[in-house]
C-alpha cells in the first residue's frame, strides 16, 4: 500500500523536523500535522511517520495510542470535547454533555468517544481544558467555547452542522 502526503504538507513536515536536533523529537508535531490533513492517523500514516523519522512503526504506535488527542480512527468531522473535571462538573458539564448527546442522537453518559452515524460529529468528555473559571467549557475541533448553556450549545453545534 502506498501512502503519500501532499507536497505542501511534506514541506511543512520538513520544516518541523528541522526544529529539533534529533528527528524523533518531531514525532508529535508530525502526527499533529498528519492528523490535521487526514482527520485521523491511519496505520499507513504511522508507518510513513516512522519512516520519515527513522523510527520503528511501534515507536509511533506507542504515541498514537497514548495521547487521546491523536486518533487512530476517524472521530467525526467535528469533534466536540466537553470538559468533565471538577470545576466544569460543578458548573454543569454533565448537563451540557447530556444535552449535546441527546441533540445528536447519542447515548448520554457513555464513556469514550461517540460518533454520529453520519460521521459529522464525534462527542466525548475531555479532562480539564484549563478554563475552570468559565465552566462549563468545550472545544469544537480547535475552537474553544465557555459558559455554555443548552441554548448556547445548540447555536454552536448549528455552526458546525453545515
Amino acid at each position: 500500500m502506498s501512502f503519500g502526503v501532499p507536497k505542501k504538507l511534506e514541506r511543512e513536515i520538513n520544516r518541523l523536523v528541522k526544529n529539533y536536533p534529533e528527528k524523533r523529537s518531531a514525532a508529535l508535531m508530525v502526527l499533529h500535522a498528519l492528523q490535521e490533513e487526514f482527520g485521523h492517523i491511519s496505520l499507513e500514516a504511522e508507518q510513513w511517520a516512522a519512516a520519515r523519522l527513522n523510527l520503528q512503526p511501534i515507536n509511533i504506535h506507542e504515541l498514537v495510542t497514548f495521547y487521546p488527542m491523536l486518533r487512530e480512527h476517524d472521530p467525526g468531522k467535528t469533534v466536540v470535547r466537553v470538559c468533565r473535571t471538577l470545576s466544569c462538573a460543578l458548573a454543569g458539564s454533565a448537563r451540557l454533555h447530556r444535552h449535546i448527546c441527546q441533540r445528536l442522537g447519542l447515548e448520554a453518559d457513555a464513556p469514550g468517544l461517540q460518533r454520529t452515524k453520519d460521521g459529522r460529529f464525534g462527542v466525548e468528555y475531555a479532562e480539564c481544558l484549563a478554563s475552570c473559571g468559565t465552566g462549563p467549557v468545550m472545544m469544537c475541533n480547535d475552537d474553544f467555547y465557555e459558559n455554555i448553556s443548552n441554548d448556547g450549545a445548540d447555536e454552536i453545534l448549528e455552526k458546525y452542522d453545515e
Binding site: E22, S25, A26, L28, M29, L63, P68, L70, A126
Partner: peptide, 27 residues
C-alpha cells in the same frame, strides 16, 4: 531559537521529566 511544541492531551506532560520524554518523541 525558540520553537513551539504541542502536546496531545496528557496531564503527565506537565511533569518536567515526562515533558522532556514527550519532547524527545517518546511516551
Amino acid at each position: 531559537e525558540i520553537h513551539v511544541h504541542r502536546g496531545a492531551g496528557a496531564y503527565i506532560c506537565g511533569e518536567e521529566t515526562g515533558l522532556i520524554e514527550s519532547l524527545e518523541g517518546k511516551r
